[in-house]
Design a protein around this nucleic acid. Structure first.
Length: 423
RNA sequence: GUGGUCGUAGCUCAGCUGGUUAGAGCGUCAGAUUGUGGCUCUGAAGGCCGUGGGUUCGAGUCCCAUCUUCCACCCCA
């Protein structure tokens, strides 16, 4: 949970709408009855409780001051500022926690989901971008998911807007060109027009929209475009440096540079990264980028950070779809002690505790149900051994051990059984 | 936020242009087998047909509202 003031305005226009707001505690409507009936933002009269409030925006602010975290990066920046005197910079941290978005759930989209964040704050060095890229590659290699990582740089996007004479239209341009592979060139140009971009600016944008092929070719086109754009050239320089570093890594997953990658979170200022799983229709399963001045908003200017976030739930969905979870994940218990009654239970519990001390996962059936039922339980849970201890076994001290895979049953001493399990 | 969609047994679903007692498979429970799982057979339990209203002699079925599910867009993990 965070103060809404911490969260608002950090995620773009859409982001604010997607924040879950929490109602204040206590009698937050106190004093409201004296308010005059009013109107909403459009000047239309409003009724009900809202009519007692001068305007709805201030009403919302009045009843809700806290919200659920939308991501882990912004609260992290807040944390870094609050603890700036105790931290050693560059400060690294990872964090795995749920975040919430007030969105309509659908495939691969949840109202509550876990993010796994890795961030380094306090250095502008591109070496950290490189390390994060290595982490991404390592994580997905180990999980057995084939991915494609796409990079871009916000400075390049800003440079494009600058170069075509519409620097204030940066967001509109990025949102539109992001749709290029979905809707096609014509519709994108139409949308740009609707968003108030001049015909000449759209014409100047054409080479970027039509960009294809090798990275070096793309860079050449951009360099030509950026002749008078300082920001754009800085972006190109960063990109080149990063690409130079990546080339020596020999990553096992695919990667590419794509000017169409936009990313809506508006705190990004440099490198932006997005990872998608190949052969699965799912949104991005990991994303991130560099934010030069996120801490500045909270009172610590001039500190650059870079971070990525893995979407745990989507990664789970992808692994499920691709059958990447090993079957052995279901094999938990090695030994089940059948339960024949109170006396036998006591006897078994001692043994159970001894076997657990040997590091062998084991359990006892919770009540003295029919043996048929207990064996069925073991069978369905794929427990390999069931130990049967009844009157006979208690008297002669030997255990009856049933091997569920073969169905064979034999008597052995406690020590024999343990060494059998440890093989 | 916009558009669409779904809701019937624990689960997956069938139920025709409204018509008597709402079905199947799986699962659960009991038995065949009183200390022996998987396979088989026999039987049983289990339903305010999402909720509220309406039309009708009669509603799981038609109409309205509402909630929920899932999907697409927007956007994103």
């Amino acid at each position: 949970m965070e103060n809404l003031s911490t969260l608002m305005g950090k995620y773009g226009e859409e982001g604010d709408k997607l924040l879950f707001k929490i109602l204040n505690s206590g009698n937050y409507l106190e004093g409201m009855q004296d308010q005059q009936p009013g109107s909403n933002n459009n000047g239309n009269p409003v009724s009900g409780i809202a009519s007692r409030i001068p305007d709805l925006t201030s009403f919302t602010r009045h009843i809700s001051e806290k919200g659920l975290r939308y991501d882990l990066t912004v609260p992290f920046a807040r944390f870094v500022v609050q603890h700036q005197n105790e931290l050693v910079f560059p400060f690294k941290r990872y964090q795995i926690q749920p975040v919430w978005r007030a969105d309509r759930p659908q495939k691969g989209r949840y109202r509550e989901f876990f993010q796994c964040d890795v961030d380094v704050i306090g250095s502008p060095s591109l070496l950290y971008e490189l390390e994060l890229i290595q982490i991404i590659d390592d994580v997905f290699s180990r999980l057995g998911i084939e991915t494609t990582t796409v990079f871009n740089n916000r400075k390049i996007l800003a440079g494009i807007a600058e170069a075509i004479g519409a620097p204030e239209k940066l967001t509109d341009i990025t949102v539109a060109i992001d749709k290029l592979d979905k809707t096609g060139l014509e519709k994108v140009c139409l949308e740009l027009n609707e968003r108030g971009l001049s015909d000449s600016a759209i014409a100047a944008l054409q080479p970027v929209l039509l960009m294809e092929g090798r990275i070096s070719d793309k860079i050449t086109i951009l360099e030509k475009l950026f002749q008078n754009s300082e920001t754009g050239n800085k972006g190109i320089a960063e990109l080149k440096q990063l690409l130079g570093l990546i080339k020596d890594l020999s990553l096992s997953n695919k990667w590419n540079f794509d000017v169409r990658l936009a990313r809506g979170l508006n705190y990004y200022t440099g490198t932006i990264i997005e990872v998608k799983a190949n052969d699965v229709s799912m949104g991005s399963i990991c994303g991130g980028g560099r934010y030069d001045d996120l801490t500045g908003i909270f009172g610590l200017p001039g500190v650059s950070g870079v971070g990525i976030s893995f979407g745990a739930d989507r990664i789970y969905d992808v692994m499920n779809e691709l059958n990447k979870f090993p079957d052995t994940i279901l094999h938990t218990t090695k030994v089940l002690f059948a339960n024949f009654g109170t006396e036998e239970e006591k006897f078994s519990l001692k043994l159970l505790s001894d076997i657990r001390k040997e590091g062998i996962a084991s359990e006892i059936y919770p009540d003295s149900s029919k043996l048929k039922k207990q064996l069925e339980y073991a069978s369905r849970k794929q427990i390999p051994f069931v130990v049967l201890i009844g009157k006979d076994e208690m008297e002669n001290g030997l255990l009856t051990v049933k091997d569920l895979a073969s169905g064979e049953q034999s008597r052995m001493s406690r020590e024999e059984f343990i060494s059998k399990l440890k093989k």
